[in-house]
């Protein structure tokens, strides 16, 4: 069961409203395409970069586009990306679009060496293009908060109805204000997670966290449970993109602006700090 600190009014009602509204609107034909003229705001640089110790840094640099424009694979070729480490060493990431075989993520720029990052290390990102646009940001790796236990329990049904919920337990450090992200993937980590929570420790500072799922996993499922310890700006970014997406199509939602971790553009630059466990749900 997720902690309620991340709940919002609409999230509480979302299943209800979805059931009622989808049934009603679709049955009555109450939706139609309309022409709206949306102004095209000036394009801004967009960066998405997650550094991870032991990995070669990769970054995706794009730019904002008008919402109703056609999807395009056109890439920015005039961008220079540099990464400055805690020692002051500057690495220039070379332009070389590709897809990471492990994460299935697309990237536009890639480093030349694997990084060794320790908690407390700070990196800075600079993205410049020939039009004079300059996106920049920095990130400090949070300490790893270890998972204490991952456990599960099956219901008393049989066959396909037999399902388990999963509990993830960990202890929150008392001295700091902390933000987390719990992801549970089934079979692979390079796909959308089955569970994705972003709690903070406002209600449980210094106490044990128990984050649970519903009865949704089958016997012998292989799960990857990852607990990320987030920087505040990254947490805000995640919340804001969730709010922004929720507001599109929600008459009760208040449109929210994306709260970037970078300046001079839009996007996220952060160092990941997480522990991941692989479990097989044995009965």
């Amino acid at each position: 069961m997720p902690l309620p600190s991340t709940a919002s009014a609409f999230r509480l009602f979302r299943p209800v409203l979805a059931i009622v509204s989808v049934g009603w609107l679709s049955s009555c034909g109450l939706q139609k395409d309309v022409d709206v003229e949306l102004p095209a705001p000036p394009a801004q640089l967009v960066a998405e970069c997650y550094l991870e110790s032991g990995q070669i840094p990769q970054i995706t640099v794009t730019e904002t586009v008008p919402y109703l424009s056609e999807p395009s694979n056109e890439l920015l070729t005039d961008v220079t990306v540099t990464l400055t480490g805690p020692t002051g060493r500057i690495d220039t990431l070379r332009f070389g679009p590709g897809q990471n075989a492990g994460t299935k993520k697309f990237f536009t720029h890639r480093g030349r060496r694997r990084l060794t990052i320790r908690p407390g290390d700070t990196y800075r990102l600079d993205v410049k293009d020939t039009k004079g646009r300059h996106l920049f940001g920095s990130s400090t790796m949070p300490a790893i908060v270890p998972i204490d236990t991952v456990e599960w329990k099956f219901n008393d049904r049989t066959g396909e109805q037999r399902k388990a919920y999963v509990l993830t337990k960990f202890d929150d450090p008392a001295a700091t204000v902390d933000f987390y992200r719990l992801q549970v993937h089934r079979r692979h980590v390079n796909d959308d997670p089955e569970v994705d929570y972003t709690p903070d420790d406002r209600l449980l500072n210094g106490q044990r966290f128990v984050l649970g799922t519903s009865y949704e996993f089958s016997p012998n499922d292989t799960l990857f449970v990852a607990l990320y310890h987030l920087e505040r700006p990254y947490y805000d970014f995640l919340r804001s993109i969730d709010d922004a997406q929720s507001a599109n199509g929600n008459p009760f939602g208040q449109p929210a602006k994306v709260r970037s971790t970078v300046e001079g553009g839009i996007g996220v630059f952060t160092i990941l700090s997480y522990e991941r466990r692989r479990v097989i749900l044995k009965e």
């Binding site: 949306l38 102004p39 095209a40 705001p41 967009v46 998405e48 997650y50 995706t60 794009t62 904002t64 586009v65 008008p66 919402y67 990471n100 994460t103 299935k104 993520k105 697309f106 992801q183 993937h185 980590v189 390079n190 796909d191 959308d192 997670p193 990320y228 993109i241 922004a244 997406q245 507001a247 599109n248 449109p255 929210a256 602006k257 994306v258 839009i266 996007g267 996220v268 990941l272």
Partner: peptide
Amino acid sequence: PTGRIAVQDVFGGELEAVPLY
């Protein structure tokens, strides 16, 4: 929303459009 960006998130998954208001 007048603009959009695409976000991939940490580990693969589907590319999602995020509206800019």
